[in-house]
Structures are given as structure tokens and as C-alpha cells.
Simulated assay, not measured.
Amino acid sequence: MSNIVKDKSFLLAIKGVKIYKKITESKHEYILSKQFVRSITSVGANIREAVNGQTKPDFIYKLSIAQKECDESMYWLELLQATDYISKDEFLEIYNDCEEVLKITKSIIITSKNNIKNS
């Protein structure tokens, strides 16, 4: 797997942690933001686990978890923006990054599954 998805998911986690810190410090919101920071940091953690997977199915499984966590993060971002905890600009910046990581992850999963079928 390319390092690009590892790098992008790590940068995504950094942005997520910064948003979490801002929300908790300035808006004193702890419930939604905690859910968000857990899912956004889980994306990169599961991608890292996938890279170290022992088998191709393990690799695909861990990437699938990362994909689900990324999608969940997008939900929390939508909710945080809709409830005015983050601005539209903050939302768009990180949401677009989430979409990019999600697309890359999906593509890797599809390619990996096809490679298993063709081997």
C-alpha cells in the first residue's frame, strides 16, 4: 500500500484533534466532539494496522474498518457543523480531506479484492 494513504490519514487525525481541542476549549462541548475525535483518529490507526496485516484478508478487513471510521467521522462533522460547533469553512476543509481518504481507501480495498480473485 502506498504511503499516501498513511500520510493523509495521519494529517486528517491531526486536523481532527485540533478541531476537538477548539470545540472543547472554546465551546465546552464534550459529547459529540469525543465521538468525532475517536473516529477520526481511528482511521489512521486502522490503516497502520492494515499495512502490518499478516494476510491479504486481514489487510482488507482492517482497511474496511478504516473506511467505516472515516464515514462515521464525516457524519460527526456534518452534525458538528449543523449544530454550529464548527464553521462552514472548518467543516469543508476537513470534510474534503475525509472524502479523499475515503475514496483512496475504497479504491485500495476494491483493488485488493480483485487481486485475490485473480490469483
Rank of each mutant, 00 (worst) to 15 (best):
80 L>M: 05
3 N>E: 15
45 A>P: 03
63 L>A: 03
76 W>N: 06
70 C>G: 03
112 S>I: 11
69 E>P: 11
65 I>G: 11
110 I>S: 14
84 D>L: 07
44 G>S: 08
36 F>T: 02
19 I>H: 01
71 D>W: 05
94 I>P: 03
73 S>M: 03
103 K>G: 06
119 S>D: 12
76 W>L: 02
44 G>L: 02
29 E>Q: 06
81 Q>H: 06
92 L>H: 09
17 V>N: 02
104 I>C: 01
74 M>D: 02
61 Y>R: 15
94 I>R: 10
88 K>T: 09
20 Y>A: 03
39 S>W: 03
9 S>T: 11
48 R>T: 05
95 Y>Q: 08
105 T>I: 10
15 K>S: 10
79 L>S: 03
81 Q>C: 12
99 E>Q: 13
36 F>L: 07
66 A>I: 07
113 K>H: 10
17 V>Y: 06
47 I>A: 07
35 Q>C: 03
112 S>K: 01
59 F>K: 11
94 I>H: 10
112 S>T: 04
92 L>D: 15
38 R>W: 07
26 S>L: 08
115 N>D: 13
58 D>E: 11
19 I>K: 02
87 S>E: 05
14 I>R: 09
119 S>R: 14
113 K>C: 10
99 E>W: 00
42 S>L: 01
28 H>A: 01
72 E>N: 03
61 Y>C: 14
61 Y>D: 13
60 I>W: 09
82 A>E: 13
37 V>W: 02
34 K>N: 05
17 V>G: 04
93 E>Y: 08
108 I>C: 05
2 S>Q: 12
88 K>A: 09
11 L>R: 14
29 E>R: 00
25 E>S: 13
